[in-house]
Design a protein around this nucleic acid. Structure first.
Lengths: 199, 199
DNA sequence: GACTTTAGGTACACGACTGTAGCTTATCTG
DNA sequence: CAGATAAGCTACAGTCGTGTACCTAAAGTC
């Protein structure tokens, strides 16, 4: 080892974790389209050869990192607080979306060639939740308990919260808790017929 | 001219239009991050030197194309049909978003480095409309005429329609007219207190 | 301490894109 | 028709990423 002689040499899991972290950072900076083995290796401070021993191309590294990322937290509707639980479910969504894995998924979804490259299994595993899971879990829970008719949970209604959060994120301004409360009060609750606004 | 001897040689506007069209196609295929002078020139069937004579880099070509693209159609609220006008405004939005220019703007907005490269003037000119313009124009029109209180047009409410359309587009399924009607009936109208659903 | 595994490093040929220079020639203008 | 303009083409040196081969030495195993 000529220069840059690091005393310790990472192996196995430790090394792989570093590479996973590196690829997630890299994709945020350059986008899916410009991921390179070079860039990943540089950021993880490892040789390209090491990467090629395990993965055939940069996308494979990225998908592997996502596969091993922490799963999405599920909203768990509590006692008797529809409004609060909706807000909390959107908070979970925001939290996940701002995490490295969440932002990487967003990068793939918005890349022209992103989704084509993803295997079907991974789509199931990682991407399935992105849909209407967050608020609709909560909505179904309260509809079953008679707080409002289940027929109100149409595909459109199930997406309102997520859609508005996505819009805010695309606009570059992650929603605050107050924004989330507004979304619940001014969009979701009216849509299910529970307009408890005081206008 | 050695091989590929084209009888006609394009000049001026004709050539530039071809280049503009080429860059818009190119960005849809490869994304903002992978735009190259090579690719644009290849697609427009022109020499790279011709491109360099006019633009310093691929992004400049793209922005110039957007600058010269047809502007966004504005929704024009009609006589007395809030629901119909809302649907029409969303139809305009979908139409624009699916156009080459619209999709190119989306590509820039979702690119990690996309927005940074855009000059402020162009943001004003091209991107300003993307916000809540479509439905909120209609909403303001009818609020002024007393169909519902203007105080209902909060930032959240103004974004509901656009947000849901964006969500559908991100999911890869451009909304049909029936979808747009559902969005209006099940999300926008309830939010402004005009729940004319028959559930 | 010897042996296996595997990360780190160097080197190389290949291909894509860059930015510039310089030439040829089609097209437009007066 | 003559001259000016600008598009088309070729060439080239430089940069960056690719994928592979091959060597070295650190980290683990017995």
């Amino acid at each position: 080892m000529s220069q840059n002689d690091r005393r310790t040499r990472r192996r196995g899991e430790e090394l792989i974790n570093a590479i996973h972290a590196a690829v997630l950072e890299e994709v945020l900076e350059v986008g899916v389209g410009r991921l390179t083995m070079e860039g990943i290796g540089r950021r993880a401070a490892t040789a390209r050869t090491t990467l090629y021993r395990r993965w055939p191309d940069p996308i494979a590294v990225l998908l592997d990192a996502l596969y091993h990322a922490h799963p999405v937290e599920e909203p768990t509707p509590g006692a008797d607080d529809l409004r609060g639980d909706l807000i909390r479910s959107l908070q979970l969504m925001v939290k996940w979306t701002l995490s490295p894995a969440g932002r990487a998924v967003a990068a793939i979804l918005t890349d022209p060639k992103g989704i084509e490259q993803v295997s079907d299994e991974l789509v199931e595993q990682v991407f399935a939740q992105r849909g209407g899971t967050f608020t609709s879990t909560v909505l179904r829970h309260y509809a079953e308990r008679g707080h409002f008719p289940a027929s109100r949970i149409t595909p459109v209604v199930a997406d309102i919260g997520e859609a508005l959060v996505v819009k805010r994120l695309l606009d570059g301004a992650p929603p605050t808790d107050a924004d989330l409360a507004d979304i619940v009060d001014q969009a979701i609750l009216p849509a299910i017929g529970l307009a408890d606004r005081l206008t």
